[in-house]
Computed example of a mutant assay.
Amino acid sequence: MDLAVKPGQTIRSPASGTVTFSGRVVDRGVITVTTDDGYLTSFEPVTEQLPRGTRVSSGDVIARRDWEQSHEGCSSCLHWGVRHGGDYVNPLLLVGALSPSVLWPLPPRPRPLIFSYNRRLLSSHSMMWICTCQELFNPLV
């Protein structure tokens, strides 16, 4: 997930945990915090990141957005990745900004709609089709 941030902006840990990676990957700084409940949260591109092994609490500053490194698709966004059990998960789950999906049962299959078409000449060079939809049922009954 890419977050809109300003170059040099402080990056805070989304949860309590331990810095398990702090270094460079290819050409950018990366920091990973393994949370107390086993999520690996990674941010890039960063600079001034805390060293590996540092214990952090939720909201602690862990790094700064690297002001010299651009990120794909934008100039100063911050990439936030989260893994749990080896699989990537939506980072919004960690901050309570995403509600779980709720699947509702499908309503009874509705009867088809009837469409009638009226043709009207607009000019000698163009023609317009007007579609009138007529419902055969009331879904609230």
Rank of each mutant, 00 (worst) to 15 (best):
V5Q: 00
D66P: 14
S57C: 04
P7Q: 03
K6N: 09
G38F: 02
T18V: 07
L92D: 10
S42G: 08
P112D: 01
F43H: 08
V33P: 13
L50P: 09
P14Y: 11
S58I: 00
Q49D: 09
Y117N: 09
P108L: 15
I114A: 02
S16N: 11
F43S: 08
F43N: 08
T18F: 01
R111C: 12
L140E: 01
D27M: 04
A4K: 06
L3K: 11
N118A: 09
A15T: 08
P100Y: 09
G38W: 01
R12H: 15
C133P: 02
I31F: 06
R65F: 11
P139K: 06
D27R: 04
P51F: 02
M127F: 08
V30L: 14
P112Q: 00
E72R: 01
C74P: 03
W129P: 00
N118Y: 04
S75G: 04
C74D: 06
P105Y: 14
R83W: 12
R111E: 14
T34C: 08
G85N: 09
Q69F: 09
R65H: 11
R28C: 01
P45C: 05
L122A: 06
R109F: 00
V82S: 12
I31K: 09
L113S: 11
P107T: 04
V30E: 12
Q49A: 14
C133Y: 03
E44A: 00
P105N: 14
A4P: 02
L113T: 13
S70L: 01
D87M: 10
Q9S: 04
N90M: 09
S101C: 01
L121N: 08
V89D: 11
P139M: 10
F21C: 01
L136G: 10
R120M: 00
V141W: 06
S101F: 02
G85Y: 03
C133R: 06
D66C: 14
W67A: 12
T20H: 04
R64K: 15
Y117V: 12
W129M: 10
E48N: 06
D66W: 13
V30G: 13
D27C: 02
G85D: 09
